[in-house]
Amino acid sequence: MPRFARGFNVEQAHAWLARRDRRLAAWMRRLGPLPAPEGWARRFDPVDALARAILFQQLSGKAASTIVGRVEVAIGSARLHADTLGRADDAVLRACGVSGNKLLALRDLARREAAGEIPSLRRMAVMEHDAIIEALVPIRGIGRWTVEMMLMFRLGRPDILPVDDLGIRKGAQRVDKAADMLAPKALALRGEKWGPYRTYASLYLWRIADFSESPILKTNRSQD
């Protein structure tokens, strides 16, 4: 059974994409090489990462970080898991700023973890990315996009293209100088040219979508 490393050679990915797509290559020269995401080298706990992803949904990075900090204080741990989240009842977590829907999602995550339904990091290392997505999207509050962010920024899988992401679609539109954004299915076809390094192409598409001559402040993300 193949074992998947966390991360890939970004220099190799850069060279490959520069040869494969002339339009993207022009932007790559303009923006310069992009480094590997820092998350590839950090200790990683899938359940904790999913819990944080739930808490970050539909909030600014600053607001979500504040709520996560309150939850950590309430449970007395920086590790969000079934055992630690169980230290605080629903009222306590709601007082931290956790919405009703997010609370239900956290409880579902904890229940599934306790039942052994969440693959461990060791198990994920031998799973194809589609299998990881299939295993995690049944969790309440966890959609395909959330798992794709984990695959890209934590597991370092090289060939992920989140076609439903607005920034990715805007970046591709800007690369192609198109009047309209591509629909997700069309973007998936367009992105076949970037395989097997669609993750690295995605990092550029986000930068391209946000590009301006003025500096942009960094936003906290759940997977940072």
Rank of each mutant, 00 (worst) to 15 (best):
G195Q: 14
S214E: 15
A13I: 07
A131T: 14
D45C: 09
W145G: 07
D224V: 05
T66G: 10
P46E: 00
D164W: 03
T146Q: 04
L34W: 02
Q173P: 02
A41L: 10
R87V: 09
K218Y: 15
A49F: 02
A63W: 01
W40Y: 00
R19V: 08
L104K: 14
L24Q: 00
E11N: 06
M1I: 09
A41Q: 10
S222W: 15
M152F: 08
S202D: 05
W194F: 03
W27P: 05
F44S: 07
L151D: 01
A13Q: 04
R198I: 01
D130F: 09
F44K: 03
A15G: 02
P2A: 15
R19S: 12
M150Q: 08
A183P: 01
L187Y: 02
R122Q: 12
L187I: 09
P119M: 14
L166C: 03
G143R: 04
G7R: 00
R123Q: 15
I139S: 06
A114V: 06
E148C: 04
P162E: 03
W206G: 06
A209M: 04
Q173I: 05
L109S: 04
T199R: 00
K218S: 11
L50K: 06
T66V: 12
R29N: 06
M181A: 12
R140D: 08
L189H: 09
L189D: 12
A209C: 10
P215T: 03
R123C: 07
M124G: 07
I133W: 10
V92Y: 09
D159M: 02
A209W: 11
D89H: 10
R111E: 15
P35I: 00
A125C: 03
P2M: 14
R112H: 12
F44G: 00
R3W: 08
E134I: 10
L80E: 02
A183G: 14
E117T: 10
A5E: 13
E113Q: 15
L151I: 06
D164R: 06
Q58G: 01
D83A: 15
R107W: 12
L187S: 02
G191M: 01
G156Q: 06
G100N: 13
R20S: 14
I54S: 06
I75N: 02
L93I: 11
L31E: 08
P162K: 00
R111L: 13
A78C: 07
P35H: 01
L104A: 15
S222A: 14
R22E: 14
F4S: 01
G97F: 02
D83N: 11
A183F: 08
R140A: 13
V175F: 08
L55T: 02
G69L: 07
R22A: 13
G32M: 01
G61M: 00
D159W: 10
A49V: 06
G156E: 05
T84S: 12
W206H: 02
R140W: 11
R169M: 03
P33C: 00
P35N: 02
E72M: 12
D164A: 14
V92D: 04
V68D: 01
K177M: 11
V47Q: 09
L59G: 04
T219M: 10
S99A: 11
D108C: 11
I132L: 12
L55G: 05
R52T: 04
N220T: 13
L161H: 02
T199Q: 03
E213M: 13
A135F: 07
V73I: 14
D210P: 05
L59Y: 06
R107F: 13
T146P: 13
M1Q: 12
R207K: 15
M149I: 05
L106A: 08
A82K: 08
V137D: 08
P138R: 03
